[in-house]
Design a protein around this nucleic acid. Structure first.
Lengths: 202, 202, 202, 202
DNA sequence: GATGAATGAGAATTCATTCAT
DNA sequence: GATGAATGAATTCTCATTCAT
């Protein structure tokens, strides 16, 4: 009885993000979101039109966050190789620090991507726009392999980064170790960088 | 109108596989499965105890299928490098020919893997056991890099292959091309092999 | 726990008719209909698609009933005047014996008639088709007034009959008498007939 | 953006009248009324206690309006026949010019008349008091039929006038013409007058 | 085995009303 | 007076599961 008034909308968004990430659009329950947000269920319909609109808002917020976080990463940072490393690093650590993003995007992909398409983002439609540009530039400058298949490489980079976080629960069991422990994160990042660089460089 | 009695169980399993793959455990509807199987809903509970048991049966059948399909792949086929190529190839094409498998496994991973663990399979818990063995052997024989991180590499191979099929709908849009067209499949496979071999070989 | 199986659909229709007549489409509650029918709420959605489809089914059944009841009334019954009397009588007494019909049709009219139009019936679209024919014939034969406005007269006959039954609760209070007591019914019918005949005849 | 303060109450009443007339007490939404009135929902509860009290106020205002409009109509206007014509005319045109009144009263009648009874008006309880008096006088003076059934005649006059306006949407469809076009209004009025006079006069 | 009817526990959504400011 | 947020009790509809035959 008396939550800070101004924050209800934000509280709902935060709770929704958590639960949609954990259970997907269909697995999530409106009641659970409302109760986790500490607001009345009706508020949810007051601020957002429907469960699906709330879900879309969560996607949108996440896309904006990752764009903001990664778009500046490699700006003017030396040669393409350094830029590539920097860009993958910032993408990977964004995912590490925003563990819900990878799950949200994976649910969404399995469910057909119909909601994400509404909030159309370069990340979603183009893959990783900044990395794409770096690869093109490096190839043009003769630093990267001339026969580098950029489309395939982008697909691979994206899979390698995202999958690690969506599968971390399973890896935790198999490895009997915590995949998101700092050392494990760093080891994984180095492995991905090595995989990519060995393929990209001449 | 009257379906051959003996096949009901199989029909249910097949329908369930299709719908669970398309919509996941929570998105699938028991009614839809029954009607797609052309049987009465009660039959579903006659043969399987519950929706979740049916789902588990689908997972089990799929694991058995992939094990049968891939375990023989690289048996006695020359050196580790050739074996590795052969093993990845057979895994990749198994996924291409069984498009539901990748989706099932991805839903399951997002949902926490609790059902897959019941039908405990080496594939699931260990990753790709045959490939693991090949990597170990190649490393022991000095053909693969001595500092090869097998755990990381297995994780990568698995991600690279599976993601391609779970994301094919999105790739189709971005690429404006069909990712599972034979030429595109082959191109993807070659890219993955290159990525892996450049990293594995000395 | 154990209603006669075969009758559920009919029980639902009957309960729905009663409650829709009493409260209109929007005032009626699905729960109330189900509980009055003595069936589970889900059955209602099993047999009918939605509340609105159930309502439409009730309208349809009622239109069919009144058509069956009135269409034969004045067949081959002497001259137009006698036929007219007979037709109005049978319409009036149909309404008296089916008290829900007038209410259903009145709710529907106020709510815009959108559902009735789906089950399109001559009664609804044309007014009173049989009476219309009688009026036209009598006019053609020179028995009824040559300047008789058939459209107006049909509108009046319909109003005079139906209104009596939709307003009976109010009349009961004002009159301090029961408007549907046999003598009152007959008195009303005679009044309507007189009103009509004095206007129709030369 | 800021509405003149003093008028809020009136604005609410006007909006409520429109929406209650269109959708009835149960079909109307408090939110819709408030937004149509351009005021905050709370205001509605400030001026009126509840949705039902607001509805009652709308009924009351309408009854007062019709009383004011019709009570003077036939005052000292010649013989009973002329007075009757005058009274029906003014009633009919009041309804034509206040199209919500007929609908309000019809919803209310179907819903049992419980709210109208609270604002107890002679119109409602007695039918048409002025017309009643005229009929009685005409009968007493020997100008109207000695066996005229005043109760029936009042019921008929009321039905004939009101029904026309509550059914105008349906008539518009059947006739493929606008029932409230001036000529159609006049034609209807003449028909009603003829119907009544032929029955009332000797 | 097989069926269609039936059920009860939810699930999303709506809505009249209240409250703090 | 006036506002927007907040609430809780419905309300329509869904769905996995069971049962009688």
């Amino acid at each position: 009885m008396a939550h800070p008034v101004v924050q209800s909308r934000e509280r709902i968004l935060a709770a929704a993000e958590e639960i949609f990430a954990a259970k997907g659009l269909h697995g999530a329950r409106v009641d659970e979101i409302a109760s986790k947000a500490g607001v009345n269920k009706g508020m949810l319909y007051h601020y957002f039109h429907s469960k699906e609109d709330l879900y879309t808002a969560v996607l949108k917020a996440n896309f904006e966050k990752i764009l903001a976080a990664t778009s500046q990463a490699a700006k003017g940072k030396g040669d393409p190789q350094e830029q590539l490393v920097e860009a993958i690093k910032s993408y990977f650590y964004f995912l590490a620090e925003n563990p819900r993003f990878a799950r949200l995007i994976s649910w969404e992909a399995l469910e057909g991507g119909i909601y994400a398409r509404k909030v159309l983002s370069p990340i979603w439609e183009e893959g990783l726009p900044q990395i794409k540009k770096i690869l093109e530039e490096g190839k043009a400058k003769g630093i990267f392999r001339p026969d580098l298949d950029i489309r395939q490489m982008l697909t691979s980079i994206s899979s390698l980064c995202i999958s690690y976080f969506t599968q971390k629960d399973l890896l935790a069991i198999i490895w009997e170790d915590d995949p998101v422990r700092p050392e494990n994160l760093e080891r994984r990042l180095q492995h991905i960088l090595e995989l990519v660089l060995r393929n990209v460089l001449l």
